[in-house]
Structure formats: C-alpha cells, structure tokens
Write a protein that binds this DNA or RNA. Structure first.
Length: 189
DNA sequence: CACCAGATCCTCT
DNA sequence: GAGGATCTGGTGG
C-alpha cells in the first residue's frame, strides 16, 4: 500500500472552489475515515442556486448550516435507512457516491456484510457504512486537525466521465455527475 | 402531531 | 430492470 506517499489535502483553498470544479478535482482522490479508506470514483455536484435538487436550495437547515460553515465542511444527512456524505465547496457541495476500496478492505466488507469489493462502497449509503461515517461527524471540517475524515490527493492521470445525476426528481438532466472513466466500482454505468 | 416526499439498497427476474 | 422496505426532516393544522 501507499500510505507514505499519500498527501493529505489539508488546505482550505483546495475546497474553496465551485461545486463543479471541486467535484472534478475530487475524482481520483482518496477519502479516509480512521484506518479505512477508498479512492473516489463517483461524485455529484449540488449547486447553491438554481438547483432544485440540492438540499440547501430547498431550505433544509442542516444543509444551509454546512454551507455557511464554509469549504471543507462535512454534510452528513439521512437517506432512507442510511446516511450520505457531502463535502462543502464554494457556494455548493459535492456528494460522494462511490469508492474503490484501498485501505482496510476487510473492515469495509465486514461492516457492509459483503464479499464483492466492487460493491462494498458503490453507493452513497454503502460507502458511509463501509467507512464508518455517521451523523455525529456532520459539521466537522476535513481540513481541521484531528478530523477523523480526511482527503488525500489522487495519483496519476485519469479520464473523467460526465453525465446526469442519479436518483433525483428535480433539476433532472444537468451534467453534474462525474466519474472515473472505466472504473468497475461505480454505482451505475 | 400527522402527513408526505425522498441525493437509497437489496432481492428477485 | 422493477418493486418494496422503512425513517428523517420539512411543512401545515
């Protein structure tokens, strides 16, 4: 594994970008919680204005609070029986949708109760379970010292795929879903 | 306090 | 690819 080579993104400026730009930048990076982590292969951008699919635009309190807390803030929110996690950018946020397991793979499989690595974190709810991200972590900042959730820079070049967001009923069709092209760890093709 | 819509997941087919 | 499980926050009475 490549622990020693991983560079943590602890600079607030990295996250202080528009949701679309930040979303593209996050693809290929590593999201880590404790001793468990995975490469980000799928994300969606949610805009702060003119986006009826975004929680903040619909006036959901926790989402607005996270936005106001500024770049790098974690927005952990309930989704059906599970939770999803966003990282706040500038004037919007990015939903993490799928990971390729990198560190603590055994722990991830155990938590989710699966045997297939390609399906242990291929969805917003599942990756939170796999990493151990809970609502208690809502409002923390990934840049802060001692934050259990951290982001590391990606390595090497990769092609990014763009498409419409998944699982929403409003503002459908906008090209705000970004994927690591050709990854076998996506929630959908 | 009741109702409703939802940024999902899993199990079949 | 379709359908059901099942829970939280927002909204209105």
């Amino acid at each position: 594994m490549k622990h020693l080579e991983m560079v943590r993104l602890a600079d607030r400026a990295f996250f202080d970008r528009t949701p679309e730009v930040l979303a593209r930048a996050l693809v290929g990076c590593v999201l880590r919680c404790g001793e468990v982590g995975g490469r980000i292969v799928e994300v969606e951008a949610y805009l702060g204005v003119d986006d009826e699919a975004s929680h903040s635009v619909r006036g959901m309190r926790a989402a607005v609070a996270a936005l106001e807390a500024g770049p790098g803030t974690l927005y952990v929110h309930p989704m059906r029986q599970y939770v999803g996690v966003d990282i706040v950018g500038r004037g919007g946020m990015v939903l993490i949708r799928a990971l390729e397991p990198v560190e603590g793979v055994g722990t991830m499989l155990e938590r989710v109760g699966g045997v297939d690595e390609t399906r242990v974190a291929n969805g917003p709810g599942k990756l939170c379970r796999a990493l151990g991200i809970t609502r208690a972590m809502n409002g923390l900042n990934v840049v802060a010292e001692g934050c259990p959730v951290q982001v590391y820079a990606g390595e090497g070049a990769h092609e990014i795929g763009v498409g419409p967001r998944v699982g929403i009923n409003r503002s459908v069709g906008l090209p705000l879903r970004f994927t690591l092209a050709g990854s076998g760890f996506l929630s959908r093709k």
